[in-house]
Design a binder for these strands. Structure first.
Length: 272
DNA sequence: AATGCTACCTGGTCGC
DNA sequence: TGCGACCAGGTAGCAT
């Protein structure tokens, strides 16, 4: 579910617990993608959320005790905020209760997400953070950087967009949407991209992701931001999940690259 | 070093 | 209505 826009939307919904102090922590599932650190509960209790931020698709909750809680939503993870009428749902793995009665819940049917806690000062040394490429919405993402990264690569651009070590934040849905917007074929090797393609690509990355954030994240099946609002970007997908539909006189087709679905319109995405 | 593939896990949908 | 096959937003870790 969660690509950069969904994570960004989730984070906005978490603002309600900024500066709130943690009263209780319940861990119902010990192992998600990784084992939840034994010390996690102890470090969270009676600490206060001092900052809420995003690094790529990682949600970072900085605490006032010099630790940071890291949450990754994986494929199906969600954070919800409840108050008063809370009942534990299936797949609610991790529940944080604040002194102001707000309740933060991590729900993840497929358990591909994870939760970690580290000293804030060593956050950037964590391998999964350290190896991330430039954030898709960072101003540092420019044509010089991207060209350097891809100009000798045989890998198709669709796959390059999914490579978090090059650009972080883009996932399988927005990769298709971005390439359609840029009129670039997903099959194009990095080395075959001209600098003009790369400039267009960066423009489309920003345009598509910002638009998705404005719409509150995507809505594949039932995506909701943490305050329960339904994201509504799905209606704005041009090609993702639209196999067989027409755009003008051309059909959207679906192919599989590296085991992932790609949707595109060959006649439009012709690199011209 | 780069790259391609599998595994992790649950649930929804589709065809029979 | 039931059952199996297949698909789904991500990425670590392995083999090549």
């Amino acid at each position: 579910m969660p690509e950069l826009p969904e994570v960004e939307t989730t984070i906005k919904g978490l603002e309600i617990v900024r500066n709130q102090k943690i009263n209780k922590v319940n861990i119902h599932t010990n192992k998600l993608r990784f084992k939840i650190p034994n010390s996690l509960k102890k470090k969270l209790l009676n600490s206060k959320i001092s900052n809420i931020r995003r690094i790529a698709k990682y949600i970072i909750l900085d605490l006032d005790n010099h630790y940071s809680l890291i949450i990754h939503l994986g494929m199906s993870g969600r954070l919800k905020i409840d108050q008063f009428d809370f009942t534990r749902d299936k797949h609610d793995h991790f529940i944080v209760v604040f002194y102001n009665k707000k309740i933060l819940t991590f729900n993840d049917p497929r358990k591909f997400g994870f939760i970690d806690i580290v000293k804030t000062i060593s956050l950037m040394k964590k391998n999964y953070i350290l190896n991330l490429g430039i954030d898709a919405l960072s101003k540092k993402l420019n044509s010089k950087y991207l060209d350097k990264k891809v100009s000798r690569s045989e890998v198709p651009i669709k796959q390059i967009l999914l490579n978090q070590k090059i650009i972080s934040g883009i996932g399988n849905i927005y990769a298709s949407e971005i390439l359609f917007d840029a009129k670039i074929s997903p099959l194009t090797s990095g080395k075959d991209l001209k600098i003009s393609h790369i400039i267009k690509l960066i423009f489309s990355i920003r345009k598509i992701l910002k638009k998705a954030i404005m719409h509150g994240g995507s809505s594949i099946r039932d995506y909701r931001s943490s305050d329960g609002t339904l994201g509504n970007f799905q209606s704005n997908f041009k090609v993702y999940g639209k196999e067989g539909m027409f755009i003008g006189k051309y059909r959207v087709i679906k192919i599989v690259q590296y085991g992932r679905s790609t949707f595109y319109v060959p006649n439009i995405q012709n690199n011209k």
